[in-house]
Design a protein around this nucleic acid. Sequence first.
DNA 1: ACTTGACTTCAAGTATACTTTAAGTGTTAA
DNA 2: TTAACACTTAAAGTATACTTGAAGTCAAGT
Lengths: 142, 142
Amino acid sequence: MKTYSIQEISNLLSLPSSTLRYYESEGLLINVQRNASGQRIYTEEHIERINCIHCFKRTGMTIAQLRSLFQYEENEAEHIDEIISLLENQEQCVYEQLTHLKEDFLHIQRKVKYYKAVKNSFEQGMPRPDWTECENGENQRR
Amino acid sequence: MKTYSIQEISNLLSLPSSTLRYYESEGLLINVQRNASGQRIYTEEHIERINCIHCFKRTGMTIAQLRSLFQYEENEAEHIDEIISLLENQEQCVYEQLTHLKEDFLHIQRKVKYYKAVKNSFEQGMPRPDWTECENGENQRR
DNA sequence: ACTTGACTTCAAGTATACTTTAAGTGTTAA
DNA sequence: TTAACACTTAAAGTATACTTGAAGTCAAGT
């Protein structure tokens, strides 16, 4: 079975080795074996776990929530309901995030267009374009 | 012109008045007038600005970036290029966030389904379902 | 033998975004 | 008039997620 040093993992996944030690200290990475001189040995499973951490972190989960989830998974049979409810809750959160983010994306797109028009009006010495949706360049219609 | 006290803004937008003072101290809210006894008076423009702050914050902008943007907007003619490049950069960031978040949403959905199947297998005394995509319940195919 | 480099632990430090506290001022109702 | 209440400032405190520093260990190369 292929194993990895802390540096290999660090390079492979582009995160500092200090973060790997931190995640381990926080209980997010478990069963990290050591070699004869005490250096950490990681496996494919750890890589998968770290990818999982990254995924959940992007969706706004905290270290504490991740720790809960992983601890439940340690004893899956006993905590299957907690796992499902935690994941369903997160699914809902991410759905709402997606909804917001799509709106915010459109908002920013409109602002880019608006300021490009403003720039153009400066260059042409033309009157400033007005934006009914964004009186101060700051507003959005909901 | 309708004006608002700090409490009215706080209730209207569901954020602590301390945060409003903080945003002002950080240069995110400007031109906040005071009444005879020194209390803050907000206008519709401030409400719009705060909505704008919330929008950008959701997309991951920091206070410092928001301050830059607003400072550029103070002197739009001189900084039109910086404004456009800042906004285009943010547009790109949000686009990437959306891409990731959609993937992460699907990942979580699959996990919910998987653990529901696991729960079902427990209740039926059936063999544990396997998930080719997620050997340890932690992985995702990319 | 000895230096170099990568690792180790543990504690302390940093960055960001608030939040709380302490001490004081002004308006309002009993 | 006096208590309650909402506000004020400035400074200190908090939460989260790392990051850095100090001091030491170990294996390899010169």
